[in-house]
């Protein structure tokens, strides 16, 4: 009986050792590597819950959380050659990095964007069920070999913006509705309401806002572009611009 217990313990110990080595090998395959880092970028590891400062050639794994601080950027190359450009003030989680071990297996890359902006350049997916997806605020965007950016303001009911540069991107809203977007698309999701920003001229850049655009348009309408101040206004009074404002 004692011999049986010792033998059993030895088997269990060996099993644990083997599974640990196997698990490490598997994890190492499902990884990403920083190819560029500027400023302060942190990695909170799932394993050990440590916080590390990211640097070039550093490896990250499934479950790790990446935080780019103000004025900091990074590029993360994933195991399949896809790349994520990380903008300043961005936080996201490597939710799933599954590398196929043969041609029949699915490749799955999934990220959860908490706040900020990611630009994704995605390699071709190997099987029909393979996926590359980013989720933010319940909205999931996925691709099949394309370039797109995805950003979230990180609020409780976040405003999420998708811009497509190449290929086709699908988006699944929080109700499960699936939509496809082509190059040139620039879409905002907020509380399951989609707004086509590509339709709107003078889409505000990141540093602008509706209020600033409105002030700027007032100035352009009244002083610069329409040149209202003509001789007529000088001689006989002044002009009044009547123009219904449809905001953006």
């Amino acid at each position: 009986m004692e011999l049986f217990k010792k033998t059993l313990f030895a088997f269990v110990l060996m099993g644990l050792l083997i599974s640990s080595v196997w698990a490490d090998n598997q994890t190492n395959q499902n990884q990403g590597i920083f190819t560029a880092v500027t400023g302060k970028v942190e990695v909170k590891t799932k394993k050990g819950h440590k916080t590390k400062t990211a640097e070039k050639d550093m490896t990250v794994f499934q479950g790790d959380r990446i935080i780019a601080k103000d004025q900091s950027t990074a590029t993360l190359r994933l195991f399949d050659g896809s790349a994520l450009d990380i903008s300043p003030n961005t936080e996201f989680v490597l939710s799933k990095l599954q590398k196929p071990t043969d041609a029949t297996q699915d490749k799955i890359l999934r990220f959860k964007l908490i706040v900020g902006k990611l630009f994704a350049a995605v390699q071709k997916l190997t099987t029909s069920r393979s996926s590359f997806e980013i989720e933010a605020g319940g909205v999931v965007c996925g691709v099949r070999g394309t370039k797109f950016s995805f950003e979230s303001d990180g609020k409780s009911n976040p405003q999420v913006k998708l811009r497509v540069f190449e290929g086709v991107v699908y988006a699944i809203d929080t109700k499960g509705n699936k939509f496809f977007f082509h190059p040139g698309s620039y879409v905002k999701f907020e509380k399951d309401i989609q707004t086509d920003l590509s339709k709107l001229s003078n889409t505000p850049p990141d540093n602008s806002s509706t209020g600033l655009n409105d002030l700027n348009e007032q100035f352009k309408d009244n002083i610069i572009v329409n040149q209202n101040k003509t001789l007529n206004s000088v001689q006989g009074g002044s002009n009044v611009t009547i123009k219904p404002y449809v905001g953006n």
Binding site: G211, L212, N228, T230, Q235, G236, G237, N239, T241
Partner: peptide, 28 residues
Amino acid sequence: QSSIPPTQFIDSRYSGRGWGASGFYGIS
């Protein structure tokens, strides 16, 4: 100006002025 409706109501559609420059600064 002798023919068009008064510009108090509808702005002139044409501008023929000299060199000009303008600048605007706004903050949110």
